[in-house]
């Protein structure tokens, strides 16, 4: 490959790569600016540029790549799964359940989506697949009431981890966000420290709206960590870089398929390479 000068045109090309990975204009510009520092107008190998681009993205993501710690002496450790419709909450619970079971933990699932047709049946199948007990009520029942029952059952049975599913909701729907707040209030009645983790699922195909999702779910539900799903497609999920720069929320896992094993720890390096088009 021939060397090229790192000039305005090249910077624009790099910015375009980032924009097409959904980083958004501001984050893309901030990263290419940092990249150009000390390198502007110098000759550079084409492959080297991508490597540096990847490094710069990795620097932003590195601080948020933090595993989910379920060994904090809670009994049970309560995890609440929240997010916009169809982003992968129920499936991620199924995958987590499998992971925990393989680590020798006892897991209980709570079918807190009492709204969507067959959401309860969907979670029950994940329970069967992964050997976890499922606490479920009827569709149409009160979600907070179900969460309360599940908390009680989990305490009585002495399970290690309780994973609570919730109905999908758009963050701009106040009444649905209020309902989520109520679910959390009720959980706290049985354990003031719970939920110990509130995980927001983000769909990698989602664009700039994911920033709003993080902000509002964060405010209402006290999100403690993120999982990005559907990274097995062509979407790069670059909005996560903007989110990392702004919110410093831990990213625990990525979803890479529909199967029970398709959950991987979040790696800043791998994620950044994919965005830079290296992987």
């Amino acid at each position: 490959f021939t060397k090229r000068k790192l000039d305005a045109t090249m910077l624009e090309e790099l910015e375009d790569i980032l924009i097409q990975a959904d980083l958004g204009v501001d984050t893309a510009m901030a990263i290419t600016e940092r990249l150009s520092e000390g390198r502007y107008d110098k000759e550079i190998e084409p492959e080297e540029v991508r490597a540096i681009l990847s490094e710069e993205v990795e620097k932003v993501l590195e601080p948020v790549a933090r595993p989910l710690d379920l060994n904090r002496g809670k009994s049970p450790h309560v995890v609440l799964m929240v997010g916009v419709n169809g982003t992968g909450k129920t499936t991620t619970i199924g995958k987590l359940s499998q992971k925990l079971a393989s680590e020798g933990k006892t897991v209980m699932l709570a079918a807190g989506d009492t709204f969507r047709a067959a959401a309860v049946e969907q979670l029950k199948i994940w329970g069967q697949r992964t050997g976890a007990e499922v606490v479920a009520g009827d569709t149409g029942a009160d979600a907070a009431g179900l969460a309360f029952d599940a908390m009680k059952a989990a305490k009585e049975k002495g399970v290690d981890v309780l994973l609570i599913d919730t109905a999908g909701r758009l963050q701009n729907k106040t009444e649905l966000m209020d309902e989520l707040e109520k679910v959390i209030r009720v959980i706290k009645k049985l354990d003031p420290d719970a939920p110990h983790d509130v995980i927001l699922t983000l769909d990698a195909t989602t664009g700039q709206n994911a920033l709003n999702q993080v902000e509002i779910f964060g405010k209402v539900a006290g999100v403690t960590g993120l999982v990005m799903t559907k990274l097995d497609g062509t979407a790069r999920g670059g909005i996560l870089v903007a989110i990392a720069a702004k919110n410093q929320l831990p990213v625990h896992f990525i979803g890479v398929g529909e199967g029970v094993e398709d959950l991987e720890p979040f790696s800043a390096k791998d994620f950044a390479s994919a965005i830079a088009g290296l992987a």
Partner: peptide, 12 residues
């Protein structure tokens, strides 16, 4: 398709 889809919309 989801109205919240980002840049991947063209590919899909």
């Amino acid at each position: 398709a989801d109205a919240l889809t980002g840049q991947d919309a063209v590919n899909l």
